Computed example of a mutant assay.
Amino acid sequence: MKKLTLLLLLCCLPLAARAGSRGLDIAFIDATPAHTTAEGKRLAELLVMDMKKLYSGDQVGKLFPWSENTVDLKVLHAEPLGLSFDNLINIKNPKKIGLMLAKNRVSDGLIVFYYDRTNGVARLKLFDGNGFELLLLRLPLEGKNSAMKYSILKGNRLGALAAVGANVRWSP
């Protein structure tokens, strides 16, 4: 009987260690004005694809605090939600972000992207679940003579997204 109890305990112990673990639950908004170029729209799509791969890949648990490979990435649009950002991704009422995240059942935060081709930069800003700013990244766009003109190289995108993921205030 003691052996059976010990065997059951050893079998259930790994399951108990995983209790309460979960993946990442985050939202993404492209705050670039509607009259953006095709390069800006494509860059936003690439960022979403890179986030899904990076945040659910082999680095989970090593580089990022969440413990499962599941990513619930909700891609939202700013206009229907009543959110308006300036070119530095500032918002007048940060409480709107917190209410919007609660309404859409997003617990870990919001990543806002802004493509500024005229100044040659793209910006990413991370907000927590309450609407407070956590991180702002300014990434230079490639020049006219580059193979990916007016875009961001993949290594730079992944590095920026790794920095964003490492600054998410995640709790199980």
Results as ranks from 00 to 15, higher is better:
K53P: 00
L54N: 00
Y55Q: 05
S56P: 00
G57Q: 09
G57D: 04
G57N: 03
Q59S: 14
G61R: 10
K62R: 08
L63H: 09
P65D: 15
W66L: 04
W66A: 00
S67W: 07
E68V: 11
E68Q: 15
N69D: 12
N69H: 15
T70I: 11
D72A: 11
L73F: 08
K74I: 12
L76V: 09
L76W: 04
P80R: 05
L81Y: 07
G82L: 06
G82A: 06
S84C: 02
F85Y: 13
N87A: 08
L88P: 00
N93G: 01
K96M: 11
K96R: 15
G98Q: 03
M100D: 03
L101G: 03
N104I: 01
N104P: 02
S107K: 14
D108I: 09
G109R: 01
G109F: 10
L110Y: 01
I111G: 05
V112L: 05
Y115I: 05
D116W: 03
D116V: 00
N119S: 13
N119Q: 12
A122W: 00
A122P: 04
L124H: 05
D128F: 10
G129M: 01
N130R: 11
N130V: 04
N130C: 00
G131P: 15
G131Y: 03
E133P: 06
L134F: 01
L135I: 06
